[in-house]
Design a protein around this nucleic acid. Structure first.
Lengths: 194, 194, 194, 194
DNA sequence: AATGAATGAGACTTCATTCAT
DNA sequence: TATGAATGAAGTCTCATTCAT
């Protein structure tokens, strides 16, 4: 359908991000070379460097784009009273954000050792801490802190560990959310026997 | 009468494993080069190849050594009736196994993308599935499956995500175990509202 | 009535030369990339190629512009009798030319290995030889040839090696000129003991 | 004369230095690639990295080896009274050192812009300053300082600028030394009219 | 039980240059 | 008068691995 090498107007940057994320998720960050990304795009390595300064920069840009929803949740959460309703709503929104940016979060989960050293590592760490701070009581007992952490990880795992398991992804997400809500509810009001 | 039948003339093999694990945990598997390991041991790279066939082989050997306790738990669990008591006991034993091999599990958690491609990846995956199978009912609802997965992840996270948080590690472990037991208990008998 | 006949619509060409020379002096020719030059001018690399055919062409154009005074000295010198007065006058004029084009000559001195391979390398080499020919006697002894060479190099060094030393540049130039004159004078009339 | 790839016992390091210096002098530091060096040695690039940590390290090592004689001159000079005799002796010794390490010094002269940024740049700069300090009087007039600088440069140029000129190198060296001595003598005792 | 020397593959990155617009 | 997008070549460097000794 035409032998011209197609102009590829102005979408290369986006295409790089897409292919890169796909490969990063599939093979891990370190094992994915820029050569591979370039080849899959039918472009030279140098073209990648026209759009991004470094390999890490490609990842950062993906992260920044996809992570904005989570920041908005944090922003919103900070302005709300710390009621159980608020907490639940945070979990609901977070679960939705995870769905939208599922591959990125799978990547984050599976490449922690790598991400830790990268610039987005710090950002990510603070983000998790901030989230936990929103759903746990300030003076929560250690066990309740664990419950809150666990709630978040459960939702992450909802996409990841269950990834290759059978079942509809949407159902799995709902189930993970349910368990998370349960954990946070218990942490919110530990009940008679703490 | 020792359980380690290796001749062990000289302890270099062990020292390599120790240093390697330390660096793998600290920097990740890919980012840790054999040169670094050798340098830290004041030995040449070639020496590593006298003791191990490949880089991956070093990791495998560590894994095999440290993972035996988990296999024993699986062995034991398979022979027990699937009562709540048994499940709790499995969690307790697993928690202890985690403590003993903490760095290895931190490594596994943080380097999933890498480990997945390695030979131990499959082993590991099957092991987790087998463990979950022991603590969930065969016909468990999706939510209950999530609870069981979550219980395991909570214990893993007890060492990892809380790693840099304040507090005595032993207390954190206990708290994580408590939450895990709670989750499995709930999954075991979902109660009136399923 | 200007001596520069170029149309000069817009001064970009000149600005490129200025910035390029500045960077070439500061970092060397090879270590200065067109990207840097373009960035400092807030222009794209491609814009440079509208004004100059190659990187080397930028350097050549600078050289041609700034080197004209030296050519004029040569022209003038060839038409004069080879008296001591003439030689002194050549040195004086050369010293002034150096002052006017100081950065270029610093660059030439510090990037000889590079310049040698470039088109201006040959030009430059012939120019030095021609200059020496004007200030030395045709049948000068080796020692006297060295004196003449040395006179030139002393003036070059007057700007360069003493660049970071203390003192007013104008005074240094005067001192270098004085020593140069001295050397050429001695070479002109070696005296009783040759 | 066998077809075996010849064991190359323990002289590779030296051979790398030799070939590298040769190419650095011929083409300049930047324009000489490690590939070229390796190819000329019938070795892979990686082999270079077994013997040297970086490209710069190759140069540094050459510099350190060949520059020791100059350091010894400095050491010796510092312990002598600052008489004209001493100064002359320094020049004589320096001239000999230059002969021994001629290619290195040609390289230094022709690649100043490059060398300046390298670690040996500082060393070199201090060395020149220290040398000048030994052959000039502490309170020398500017003109006399220039004479001393000039003396050193003259000897350098004795190898370089005259490199492609006709004549026996040894004679040129002698001539340069003579002029240098002359300059330093004049600087030592400026005479009636300063 | 270990070293010294080397390799082949491949990583990330930068550069001068081109061309359609 | 310039830009946006891309290329091809090359650069420095690191890595896991091998093998004779």
């Amino acid at each position: 359908m035409g032998s011209t090498p197609q102009p590829r107007r102005g979408n290369t940057r986006q295409r790089i991000q897409d292919v890169a994320l796909e490969l990063f998720v599939e093979q891990g960050y370190e094992k994915t070379s820029l050569r591979e990304i370039a080849e899959q795009l039918r472009v030279t390595k140098a073209a990648l460097y026209y759009h991004f300064k470094t390999k890490e920069d490609i990842l950062s840009s993906i992260f920044e784009d996809l992570n904005r929803p989570v920041e908005e949740i944090l922003e919103w959460g900070k302005g709300q009273p710390r009621t159980l309703e608020t907490k639940k709503e945070i979990l609901v929104r977070y679960s939705e954000a995870l769905r939208a940016a599922a591959p990125l979060f799978v990547f984050m989960q599976e490449n922690q050792a790598t991400v830790r050293e990268l610039s987005i590592g710090h950002t990510m760490k603070h983000r998790v801490i901030a989230l936990v701070d929103l759903i746990k009581e300030p003076d929560a007992a250690l066990t309740d802190q664990v419950r809150c952490f666990s709630a978040l990880f459960t939702m992450h795992a909802g996409m990841m560990a269950l990834r290759d398991a059978e079942g509809d992804p949407e159902e799995k997400r709902a189930a993970a959310l349910e368990v998370a809500v349960e954990l946070v509810t218990k942490a919110h009001d530990p009940g008679p026997a703490a």
